[in-house]
């Protein structure tokens, strides 16, 4: 059942019809979070590459015009300029679509921000296939794979708009490079202001012992729905919101592997090199148990309504249920 201390929204959101959920876009969480961070610290600033409205950087610009830098369509410049600003004491958030930043400017991020260890925050908007009509060129589904292996980097995938706001604010409070990915489309709100959030700590939202569903981003909602469906089938699933891919919460994952004996990961990203791969690294070196991976399966996205794309790419509660049953079947039976 839902953990009380997680302080999530009503369980109806997960057990009843999808229409019960309130929908807010994660990017709105960025917009609000970065304004809050700016209110707290006068060194926080935002740099945007000609996408201020759609990344919600505009909200910061309206509040703090003197701390907003419009850099034009120049993502490589954006990353390295941010490094220079951080070198003189600023805390820059660089905001663009994840496809362009960290997509196009990966080397500048690696050399001038991470290796140089400068305090820059990378806000990657429009991550995932739920970007919709723009199609594959604008749907970043490899961004976690390219940011996680860079030393000094922290990588966060917030689950909903409220968590996105908390993650953005929290990123400004730690010293060092952080990458946060945000989805474009409105997605269900599952957490509340009271839900705990701490960078580097995965949260168990639903208790269970037969299988652990480790999810991130908007797929946490799908995993919670899957837990209710599995319950009807007599399967007890644990749901974990693994929002911080790096540094990953080894303890919570190892414990889930040991106590549940099977794991399903779920994310809106390629399964190669995604959050699931990070979980697998922990599982195989602690308690090796069967795993299944729900995510984009080695293909590009495409144009279409976000809802239909999520169905087509197999990123729904039903896909997680299926994967859970498969993983449980693969468990070793006691001799």
């Amino acid at each position: 059942m839902l953990r009380e201390e997680a302080q999530l929204v009503s369980k109806d959101v997960f057990s009843q019809d999808r229409s019960c959920a309130q929908l807010i876009a994660l990017r709105d969480g960025f917009g609000k979070g970065v304004v809050r961070a700016g209110e707290k610290n006068p060194n926080v600033m935002v740099i945007c590459a000609d996408l201020s409205e759609s990344t919600r950087s505009l909200w910061f610009k309206e509040k703090f015009p003197e701390r907003f830098l419009q850099i034009g369509v120049a993502e490589q410049n954006m990353a390295a300029v941010a490094s220079g600003l951080a070198a003189v004491g600023k805390i820059p958030f660089i905001a663009s679509y994840a496809m362009f930043s960290p997509g196009r400017n990966w080397e500048q991020i690696r050399t001038t921000i991470c290796y140089n260890n400068q305090n820059v925050k990378i806000a990657g908007a429009h991550a995932g296939i739920s970007v919709g009509p723009d199609g594959a060129t604008h749907q970043a589904i490899e961004d976690v794979a390219i940011t996680r292996p860079i030393a000094n980097m922290t990588v966060i995938i917030p689950a909903d708009a409220i968590e996105a706001e908390k993650a953005t604010f929290a990123a400004a409070q730690i010293d060092g490079p952080v990458y946060i990915r945000y989805a474009r489309e409105k997605t269900p709100v599952i957490t509340t202001e009271r839900t705990p959030f701490e960078i580097g700590r995965a949260e168990v939202y639903y208790d269970g012992t037969d299988v652990a569903l480790v999810a991130s981003g908007p797929l946490v909602y799908e995993a919670l729905r899957a837990a209710y469906i599995l319950k009807e089938k007599g399967i007890s699933a644990r749901v974990i919101n693994n929002h911080t891919v790096k540094p990953i919460d080894e303890k919570t994952i190892a414990q889930a592997a040991q106590e549940c004996g099977a794991i399903v990961t779920a994310e809106e990203h390629q399964v190669q090199g995604g959050m699931g791969s990070a979980v697998a690294e922990i599982v195989v070196k602690t308690h090796a148990v069967p795993m299944e991976f729900v995510g984009v399966q080695n293909r590009f996205g495409e144009s279409g309504p976000p809802d239909l794309l999520m169905d087509k790419f197999g990123l729904r509660d039903s896909n997680i249920v299926e994967a859970a049953q498969k993983a449980i079947k693969r468990k070793k039976r006691p001799a």
Binding site: L69, V81, G84, A87, V88, K90, T111
Partner: peptide, 25 residues
Amino acid sequence: LETTSGPLGSGLSQAVGMALGFKMD
């Protein structure tokens, strides 16, 4: 040393960032 470099072409951006930061302050 003020920066980390090697891959060509990004030093001027960092210098611009520093110069902008000094102007802001």
